[in-house]
C-alpha cells in the first residue's frame, strides 16, 4: 500500500524548523518499504528523537493506522509545536515533549519502545557549531557528524523493548560500518534498509534489532 506524504504546508510559519529534504524522504521511503514488518511487530509505543517538522512520525502513524502511542522529542519548542500540528493536519495524533534527546524519559521508558527513530544532525562541522542555536541545530553534527547521535547510542539498548527496532539515518562521513560494529558489540544485528546518493550526500537508513529476535521482515 502506498502511503501519502504528510501535508506540511504550515511549515512556513516555523522558520527555525528543518524543512523536509532528501534525508527525510529517504527515511519515509524506508519506512514505507518496511510497512509489513512494522505492522507485524504490532508496536504499542514508538519514539522519534528530534522530530523537526513531524512528518516522519506522522507518516509512521499513518502506516500503523494510529494503533500505537507515538511520542516524539525535540529540543526546539517550535519543532515540537510544528510536529503536533503536522499530526493534527494529517488527522493523526502525536505526543510531543520538548527535551534534549531522551532526557526525562529514562529510566521510565526502559524496554518500552518498540520503534525508535533518529534522523540526527549528521553534517560534519566543527564541534563549536553544535552550540549555536537556530537552524544550525538541525544539521550541525560536529566531528564526523557523529557528536549528537553518539550521545543517544548508549541509551538505545535501554529504550528498546525485546523485539524493538531502531531506524537511523546516516551519511557516509558518519562511518556507518563503524556504527554497525559498535551496535554488534552491544548484541544488535543490523542491515541497511535503503541507500541513496543525493547531491554530495551518500545517505543510508540503517535498521538495528536485538540479536536472537526476529527482524520483523
Amino acid at each position: 500500500m502506498s502511503i501519502a506524504t504528510p501535508d506540511y504546508r504550515h511549515l512556513k510559519d516555523f522558520p527555525d524548523v528543518y524543512e523536509p529534504a532528501e534525508d527525510t524522504f529517504l527515511l519515509l521511503d524506508a519506512l514505507e518499504k518496511e510497512q509489513n514488518a512494522l505492522n507485524k511487530l504490532r508496536p504499542t509505543l514508538t519514539l522519534e528523537v528530534g522530530s523537526g517538522s513531524g512528518i516522519v512520525t506522522t507518516f509512521l502513524a499513518k502506516i500503523l493506522q494510529s494503533k500505537a502511542l507515538h511520542l516524539v522529542t525535540d529540543r526546539n519548542s517550535q519543532a515540537t509545536l510544528c510536529t503536533q500540528q503536522t499530526a493534527n493536519y494529517n488527522e493523526t495524533r502525536v505526543d510531543a515533549i520538548n527535551t534534549d534527546l531522551v532526557h526525562g524519559l529514562l529510566p521510565r521508558l526502559q524496554n518500552c519502545v518498540d520503534i525508535l527513530i533518529l534522523n540526527p544532525p549528521y553534517v560534519v562541522t566543527p564541534s563549536h557549531e553544535l552550540l549555536e542555536t537556530g537552524i544550525a541545530w538541525t544539521w550541525a553534527g560536529g566531528i564526523c557528524g557523529r557528536e549528537v547521535m553518539d550521545r543517544l547510542f548508549p541509551d538505545v539498548p535501554k529504550l528498546l523493548s525485546k523485539r524493538g527496532i531502531f531506524y537511523l539515518v546516516v551519511v557516509q562521513e558518519n562511518k556507518p560500518k563503524e556504527i554497525m560494529k559498535m551496535f554488534e558489540n552491544m548484541e544488535f544485528a543490523s542491515t541497511v534498509v535503503l541507500n541513496r546518493r543525493a547531491g554530495p550526500e551518500n545517505l543510508s537508513v540503517i535498521k538495528f534489532w536485538k540479536k536472537g529476535t526476529e527482524d520483523g521482515s
Binding site: R9, Q85, N88, G104, R108, C112
Partner: peptide, 21 residues
C-alpha cells in the same frame, strides 16, 4: 482544509515523564 486545533499534553504522556535534575 487545515484545522487549527492545538494538541495538548495527555495523561498518557505524563505517565512516561521523569524528573532528571
Amino acid at each position: 482544509m487545515l484545522l487549527s486545533r492545538i494538541l495538548n499534553m495527555r495523561l498518557i504522556t505524563h505517565n512516561m515523564l521523569t524528573s532528571h535534575v
